[in-house]
């Protein structure tokens, strides 16, 4: 009994913070999604599921949902593989610490700084990237203004930004694999590829899944890169759900009700994805 009181006293400040600024807004958002709430509107009415049915007709919302999904799927493989390859190359060797730092460095930058950097590099007319492409005889493009490449440019920027983070995680995972396993495999005459497939990959599986889950939850909320690099363009080619929501709530019409409905629709999608992921995670970690 005493201990219960003590425990809750310890928990009180954190739980207060959590309930007021996480749980309450979550539920309040659900409530708002059934209203016609708007910034500065005094008389707020319940409108049933009108905000949700309107989402079904909002083609720009569909486009942004499709873009977000495309980004999520298309960026997962590079984010999964590039740091892994680097980690394998850097796992042993004299330059490990230095190079790890180099690759990690972009991750300390804010998304805005990353965006500004790449905006300047990729400037279609006076940016260095296109200049070197032209010098090398390769076709220069306006990467961020070309519907065929804009999302890929955002993905490349993101890969540059986060590779260091996942690299460190992979390196830690690799360090935890007992060396003896590789030595035993080498004695059995296994090739490098064989021991990668039969030792490294299976033992790294929890790490890989962590990377995928973290990346996917982040990807569904893609905003900063798009805000700085393309503003959602060209046209709506890189418009994302969070951008659509942000504009509906805070840029154009200040429709809090409609934006809340978008938020919950997004939440539902993420929830479905997460359940799917956890199924996978649970299924595979028991080896």
């Amino acid at each position: 009994m005493r201990q219960t009181r003590t425990a809750y006293l310890f928990l009180a400040p954190g739980l207060a913070l959590f309930v007021v600024f996480r749980v309450y807004p979550l539920l309040e958002g659900l409530r708002l999604s059934f209203t016609n709430a708007r910034l500065g509107r005094a008389a707020v009415r319940y409108v049933g599921i009108a905000n949700y049915t309107r989402l079904l007709e909002d083609t720009r919302f569909h486009v942004s949902l499709a873009n977000t999904a495309f980004y999520t799927v298309a960026s997962t493989l590079p984010v999964l593989v590039i740091p892994l390859v680097l980690a394998l190359a850097l796992n042993r060797g004299a330059l490990r610490t230095v190079l790890r730092s180099v690759f990690f460095f972009p991750f300390t930058l804010s998304v805005v700084t990353v965006g500004l950097t790449w905006l300047w590099l990729l400037d279609p007319v006076v940016g260095p990237f296109n200049y070197y492409l032209r010098t090398a005889g390769l076709p220069a493009r306006s990467w961020l203004a070309d519907p065929a490449t804009a999302m890929w440019a955002i993905i490349a920027t993101t890969v540059w930004w986060v590779t260091g983070y996942y690299l460190v995680i992979y390196l830690a995972g690799l360090q935890d694999i007992p060396r003896e396993l590789y030595e035993a495999a080498a004695l059995d005459g296994a090739s490098g590829w064989r021991s990668f497939r039969s030792i490294t990959l299976p033992l790294l599986r929890p790490v890989l899944l962590f990377v995928v889950v973290t990346h996917i939850i982040g990807s569904f909320q893609l905003f900063g890169q798009v805000f700085v690099l393309t503003g959602g363009g060209p046209g709506d080619a890189t418009r994302t759900v969070v951008q659509h929501l942000y504009e509906a709530a805070f840029q154009n019409f200040f429709q809090f009700g409609a934006a809340s409905a978008m938020a919950w629709a997004l939440f539902a999608v993420i929830l479905l994805f997460s359940i799917f992921q956890f199924r996978l995670l649970r299924g595979h970690t028991e080896y």
Binding site: R22, A259, A263
Partner: peptide, 23 residues
């Protein structure tokens, strides 16, 4: 308490954006 806390890690920030602003 622990389950709720861990579960909340799945909540995307974007979902609470508007109500948090109102609050």
């Amino acid at each position: 308490v622990f389950t709720v806390l861990v579960g909340s890690l799945m909540i995307p920030n974007a979902v609470v954006l508007v109500p948090q602003y109102v609050l």
